[in-house]
Design a protein around this nucleic acid. Sequence first.
DNA 1: ACGGTAAGTCTACAACCGTATACATAGGAG
DNA 2: CTCCTATGTATACGGTTGTAGACTTACCGT
Lengths: 186, 186
Amino acid sequence: MATARRRDAAATRAAILQAGIDAFTRHGFDGIGVREIAQAAGVSAMLVNRYFGNKEGLFAEVVEVSMTDRTVLTGDPATLARDIAAALVRRTAPDADDLSPFLLMLRSASNQRAAEILRAGIEKHVEAHVYDVAPQTRGTGRAALVLSVIAGFWLQRKVIGSTALEAADEEELAGTLRRLFEVLLP
Amino acid sequence: MATARRRDAAATRAAILQAGIDAFTRHGFDGIGVREIAQAAGVSAMLVNRYFGNKEGLFAEVVEVSMTDRTVLTGDPATLARDIAAALVRRTAPDADDLSPFLLMLRSASNQRAAEILRAGIEKHVEAHVYDVAPQTRGTGRAALVLSVIAGFWLQRKVIGSTALEAADEEELAGTLRRLFEVLLP
DNA sequence: ACGGTAAGTCTACAACCGTATACATAGGAG
DNA sequence: CTCCTATGTATACGGTTGTAGACTTACCGT
């Protein structure tokens, strides 16, 4: 935000956090510098360290926020697989610009410290959310497999940019994905 | 190789290439420097540039090599899904140290230039290989989905380090994965 | 034996990184 | 109004990165 902001600690902290979500999701932990994040938030680079300790501290809070209050899937077991598949295809559409926590994970996982933070966040929030809507997967590893399929699809379609997935018919794609989730969420 | 190698262009080039495969697969394109790669190959850093142009040139050749001559899956359609599932679980076992092209992809995809090189390599070699053993997937996007599932599983189990997938029973895991591949490779 | 060339190294540079320290100022409390 | 502190900036430093250019040396053909 270039418009001069009044001195407001909470607001600038929030602006830095939002800029961090954007930047880390688009470029990954190692792909962006604190100077660029600060510039996007309209502040000086050192404010990142003042409010979040250091770059890693900001990343940890970005993960925490990005993994929580996210699109909550309907808890209806009858349509769960179909709903996940439809949302996945829609949110990874070629013209969509979705800041998904899966993109955050995919683009930052190569850094080992970041991977550890991501693992904790995923298990605490995302995987736990799968257990909420599909309790029968507890202890089977199938909840983690659901996340694997989602992450893999996001990787191929939006990070790698598979031309096969770009050309594929979206309805057929959603149908196939739905059958995959039906295997994992019976 | 610390032992003084005789001056042999082909051998040193191969040593650098192998060091590059190791390094890029373990740390990703942005996670390793040319100095470290050269040191692992027992040569000076500038030889990387002499033989491969620059870091990106080495990465491109690493992708090319890593995506080809790899474990060739049996072409038997009857056991294909089961074979892929079994190989996947085995090669991602917690104590396994497998330099898979999927790890190369997962750890380097955050870099945009690297992602483009990876996409080309995948479509040229890996995806084409799926078409060879399962021609019925051509044009459906299901071959790309097979790669998505494999990549997603490798990500969760070896890059992120999901504790749920570490604790899960390997036979049950292989069975579930097999049913996923049966959906994609009918 | 010996020179030419391929093979390899050394040094250096400009750019960038994360962050510590010192400094400036807005704005509310008294 | 005045001062104190929270808020924000400027500068700088040590380290690392990719790679360009000049330099050395081993080896092979003659």
